[in-house]
Amino acid sequence: MKFLISQLAVALAGFLTGLFFPWWTFAVAALLIGALMPQKGGWNFVSGFLGIFLLWLGLTLWIDSANGGILSARMAWVLPMKGQVIYLHLLTAGLGGLIAGLASQAGKYLRALFPKEKY
């Protein structure tokens, strides 16, 4: 449950930061969510990764289909992909996911540095 909520939170926060702030700010959001919702082992990485991976993949597929694939076909030659549009989607979502996953995991570890103060 926590995994799913965390994943959704990263996606939502990633989308909102993307609307207003520079491209990399979703990483800050993912880091904060990792700190607020720490999970066991590497699960913060997974939820962060999937949160942005799925968000970005959804966005690019949606944009691409509305565009009729005009631009992705051209860009898949500008980047060395020999016209394979699917790699363009996977590269975009994969890089976003990787950053978000690392940030989310970093958030969890950073929080651990500051245990709740006790009397």
Binding site: F15, P22, W24, W56, L59, I63, N67, L71, L95, G96
Partner: peptide, 28 residues
């Protein structure tokens, strides 16, 4: 990813679906 990569442009801002080239893909 914020820096040019060889002959390639900075990939982060280029690929970000809400900032990069995807935003130039106009809906039909």
């Amino acid at each position: 990813l914020d820096k040019p990569f060889g002959a390639l442009p900075p990939l982060g801002p280029l690929l970000s679906p809400q900032h990069g080239f995807w935003q130039n893909a106009e809906s039909r």
